[in-house]
Amino acid sequence: MPRRMNLAAATARPGTFRLVGAALASAAAIVAVTGCAGLEYKEDVCSSGEYPVLSVGGTGSACVSDKQEPPAGFVRYPEGKVPQQVGDKWDVYWDTHTLDKDGKIIDAPDAG
């Protein structure tokens, strides 16, 4: 004989939908007031499988495959000073600094 399900136990209690609706409305109001401040998106400087390189004597940069060396005129960033995300500490720093031909950090000539 098939087992019967107790419909009273399977249905929501009266008022449950009002409570869920109120919670969703509250969450929507918080997002509207904060402007999604807690949901900040950070863009990576390079895609997975790539690393960033800096142009020698300038502030230009590029992304190179992990399997390749930097192209002519570009070098790897100094260890510990590699930008990871757009706008992070090192990404901003390298807007006004660069490396000379000897690998020394200098003020960028075009960082007026």
Rank of each mutant, 00 (worst) to 15 (best):
G87A: 10
C46V: 15
V56E: 03
E79P: 05
E69Q: 15
Y77P: 04
K42V: 03
D66S: 13
V92G: 14
T98F: 05
E50F: 07
E40V: 08
V86Q: 11
E69S: 15
P78D: 11
V53F: 00
A72K: 12
G80L: 08
A72S: 14
G80F: 06
G57N: 06
G57V: 06
G73N: 11
D44M: 07
E50Q: 09
K81M: 12
G49D: 02
P70I: 08
Q68E: 15
Y93V: 11
S65I: 06
V53C: 01
G73F: 09
A72Q: 11
C63N: 08
V92M: 15
D95L: 12
H97D: 02
T59N: 09
G49K: 07
W94F: 10
D66I: 15
P52H: 00
L99F: 03
D66R: 10
Q84I: 06
V45R: 04
V75Y: 01
K81T: 02
G49S: 07
V86W: 06
D91V: 12
G73M: 07
V56F: 07
T98S: 09
Y41H: 10
W90H: 11
V92C: 14
G58V: 04
G57S: 09
P71W: 07
W90C: 05
C63G: 07
E79D: 14
F74C: 05
R76T: 13
G73H: 11
T96I: 06
K81E: 04
V64N: 01
K67E: 13
T59H: 07
Y51A: 00
A62E: 02
P52R: 00
A72G: 12
D100Y: 13
S47F: 14
